[in-house]
Nucleic acid binder design. Structure first.
Lengths: 156, 156
DNA sequence: CTGCGATACATGCAAATGCATGAAAATCAG
DNA sequence: CTGATTTTCATGCATTTGCATGTATCGCAG
């Protein structure tokens, strides 16, 4: 009956999330142990990486925050540290007096590339042997679909 | 040729991980915003949850640490706080003088159940509409496979 | 049994994080 | 245009985290 059905679907969703989360923890543990993140924390690298993917070069602090699992204040200070280390530069947004734009410095871009290579090696040695190419593609499709659906949905 | 193939597989693994990670961030963001985690941090809940799943009731701090994305010292203090709040009890391991066993108190078990229900509701309203049941099962299978492969592999 | 390295957990301390709040600019209602 | 509300980012402060280290126990080689 309907009640059981709803219950079963609820459980399926919870178990699916549980599996996804545990897999993320397991992989992240290994990655953090790698020497790629000896001098740069994983959240810091995440910021450098996101900036490196940004075509225009400049990115609003605001948008960056959506991408990263950090509170606004923590991101503010993380960026402050990166700036002090000469890895990024801040600039007031031209079209919005409240906004702040971010860009990688040459040094920041170089460091991102260096760590990135290491990082990709680590990832591929972890994920590569675990799943076939077809499985990886399917996993990518499913997680992309999940992320899109979740991000699209309003606050709720 | 072989070089390109290796490069392509490396990229696939990296992109797969990227997708998985972003999906996790997106879902986690929404979950953290839910009122389920107003009084209990997500890492704290994770500990309560893991203890609730433990059939024998008692769990070594040690094993718990494998499960959670926290350093050993952080977990030690997290557990200390939970004990102060009366949610768990500690006990020296009978067979190993160095070890510490953990168990939920009645109050801890009750709180876990209460938050758990809320949490499952949130998850299912996020994941449920995003993927079909078949897709969820497949996602679960793939992430389980990934986690098993990654955890099995020695330190490297 | 003895000594030595490894393992499990706790603790001092500096760094990172989040919450609450503040300041400045944008947006909106009337 | 004016005043109220919202958005964006920064900052004070308490909490949480991780690194390095300390202590106790375990396991093992000799």
């Amino acid at each position: 009956m309907a009640g059981e059905d709803k219950e079963a679907r609820s459980r399926l969703a919870a178990e699916t999330w549980e599996s996804l989360f545990r897999a993320q923890v397991a992989v992240m543990r290994k990655l953090q142990a790698g020497k790629a993140f000896k001098n740069v924390a994983i959240t810091e690298y995440d910021v450098l990486f996101t900036l490196s993917r940004c075509t225009s070069g400049w990115l609003r602090l605001n948008e960056l925050n959506d991408h990263v699992l950090l509170s606004q204040s923590s991101l503010s200070r993380l960026v402050e540290r990166l700036e002090k280390r000469g890895l990024v530069v801040r600039q007031p947004a031209p079209d919005d007096g409240r906004g702040v734009l971010l860009k990688l410095t040459e040094q920041g871009a170089a460091l991102q590339k260096e760590i990135g290579r290491e990082h990709v090696r680590d990832i591929s040695s972890l994920v590569g042997p675990a799943l076939t190419a077809a499985e990886q593609k399917e996993l990518q499709r499913l997680t992309d679909k999940l992320r899109n659906a979740v991000s699209a949905r309003p606050g709720k």
